[in-house]
Design a protein around this nucleic acid. Structure first.
Lengths: 346, 346
DNA sequence: ATTAGCATTCTTGAGACCAGAGTGCTAATG
DNA sequence: CATTAGCACTCTGGTCTCAAGAATGCTAAT
């Protein structure tokens, strides 16, 4: 818990220097090293004093009595906050991104590739989540009898997300067509959420009226054909191999990988921290509050939007020792690209 | 390279004992340990002699001069071969499998869950591949205009596999409907392969006749709307966390994880080794021939079929030190279940 | 307000050393 | 003749010690 007054100029400079060299080297940083790299010739002793203050304020920690200092969670937060945000991607990175994403017009494919390219440029784990969620507007639905007892339901959202689901249901194709027609005519453009509740209401009230048609609709509804709920979310996680670094111990690494495989948790994580309203890149330090296995990991993400619609989110997960500046610019670059590419093609 | 005459009874027994205790413990096994666990009271010295023979024959290796012996690739092959195949799953495993797969009628969902349950029961990596490939019969296609320049193509195969693809194309919905009708009427039940070549032929010849209709079809065809090719394959890989064990070194682990993320390679791997014709479980020892990063790993897999149609394959990938008997029964059990569940529901 | 100096603390790597496990060989044994 | 006992030898792995190096905190000097 940080105490004391904010931080003076010199403190600020030293703190960011510590954070930066720690990120670069991974070793606890001591006063001597710092004195050498510091452009104003401050002596180690002076720096020690400042460091002691910073430690008291909760920005630095000591692995053990006579080691250097390591930035605390607070320190990273502070560091990120005072980052100018002025930076551009290297030619290479930009090229790689452009190339991987070139010519994609399909939201889902875009997301899939994005998670990959994110992992490449960040050298960490790239994640994208496509929200199939309630906020998406319905474009239309389509039902098709498959076999004896099976019906295929395809739901297309306005944003081009496609969900299919096989139901156990025995209805003649005629009835299916009628039901699809009914839904498309009445609900095109509605959010899934609104549609579902309105549909529920009508089924309740007008049961008698439409009769056969409504019976079919009801069956489809009950079977979840129209549920664009959590289970419909699509998650891409790539670059797990990047987590294998010497500083992870066995157990932690294992837990980490396990967590990354639990898509549901990942969705919740991004959902919890990436606010749809906020425009820019967001950095969340201290993921262990949500996911214990993610101690010492951070999330750098942004909502993926096309115009004003939020289609999902994209993010990088990496150790606190990540290159914040670089990752942030990369994420933001890709987020903008997402908007641009999918917007113009509509 | 194995030399010498096959193997006598005693050799056989000792070899399997070595393989088994090595699988159990992970340590090189020495004559003393073996003598203790061997039910016929053979002395260490005798065993040493036999072991020397086995080593000459290429079945055993020595990490260093005065360590115990470790089974060679050949030894595993031999071991697996002489496995009786008589074994049944534990109540727990069976229960877990049943539960995870209960009530699923959708091929793809089945596969997704299967890869998960495979990783659970085997404590290794579970993999399933759904072949979207050319052999699948077409049930029907469906095109829908999305936005300005986009068309959604949905292809359903007889087996219930669904593929959707967004194309950049500007055709009115009428034309799309006509094209879909045309294809459905003419090609339902054809294999994708056959359909594509026949379609190509017709487009070539009868260009003039159908005119507008055929023009639409051609455009769709060119855009790959009907391509159920490799890219359409769906791969599920789960349980990567199980690879994190003490005996892996950093680098290898990293490569391994990387390889597992390259779905294309995984598809090829399964494709290469899992022969659609063969009925039963197959064990492939020595994966490094195909994928160098998979040195010391084995594949235990089976084709996933429904009736006579091969829908894909399911497999476990694990270290040579895997519990062969258990994994084999698990894989075979699930493969049978797959057939049974999807067959009856049709 | 800085800095120099110094005693102190703690980590890390290199050797040294020993116990344990295993081998191969030879000679003895039923 | 197939087994086995005995033995010298080899290699690994853990523990210990030791010294070097890096930081620290404090006090005194500038």
């Amino acid at each position: 818990m940080p105490t004391g007054q904010p931080i003076g100029e010199r403190e600020r400079e030293i703190l960011t220097a510590i954070v930066e060299t720690f990120i670069a080297t991974g070793d606890p940083v001591g006063s001597r090293t710092l004195a050498r790299s510091n452009r104003e010739g401050l002596s180690p002793a002076t720096i020690r004093n400042v460091m002691a203050d910073l430690a008291d304020a909760g920005f630095l920690e000591q692995p053990h009595a006579s080691a250097g200092r390591v930035p605390s969670t607070e320190a990273y937060r502070y560091y990120v906050e005072q980052l100018t945000g002025q930076a551009s991607l290297s030619r290479q990175d930009e090229g790689m991104i452009q190339e991987s994403l070139h010519g994609v017009s399909d939201v889902q494919e875009f997301m899939e590739r994005t998670s990959h390219v994110l992992s490449l440029v960040s050298h960490n784990v790239g994640i994208t989540v496509a929200i199939g969620g309630p906020k998406n507007a319905l474009e239309h639905v389509y039902f098709s009898r498959l076999g004896d007892q099976k019906v295929l339901a395809v739901v297309v959202t306005r944003s081009g997300l496609v969900r299919d689901r096989v139901l156990r249901l025995d209805l003649p194709q005629n009835d299916l067509d009628a039901a699809a027609h009914f839904i498309n005519d009445n609900f095109r453009g509605w959010t899934m959420e609104a549609m579902r509740s309105e549909l529920a209401r009508r089924l309740e009230q007008e049961r008698s009226v439409y009769d056969r048609l409504m019976a079919s609709v009801e069956q489809l509804y009950r079977q979840g054909a129209l549920a664009a709920d959590e289970t419909a979310q699509v998650v891409f996680v790539e670059g797990a191999a990047n987590l294998v670094t010497s500083e992870q111990d066995q157990k932690r690494l294992q837990e980490l990988l396990q967590t990354l495989e639990e898509k549901q948790k990942i969705v919740e994580l991004l959902g919890a921290y990436l606010d749809a309203k906020q425009e820019a890149v967001r950095v969340v330090i201290g993921l262990d509050e949500a996911l214990p296995s993610m101690r010492n990991f951070v999330l750098i993400g942004a909502p993926a939007r096309v115009g004003d619609d939020v289609m999902g989110s994209l993010a990088v997960i990496g150790p606190t020792r990540i290159d914040y500046q670089h990752t942030m610019t990369a994420v933001s670059y890709i987020a903008r690209l997402f908007d641009k590419m999918l917007n113009e093609s509509e």
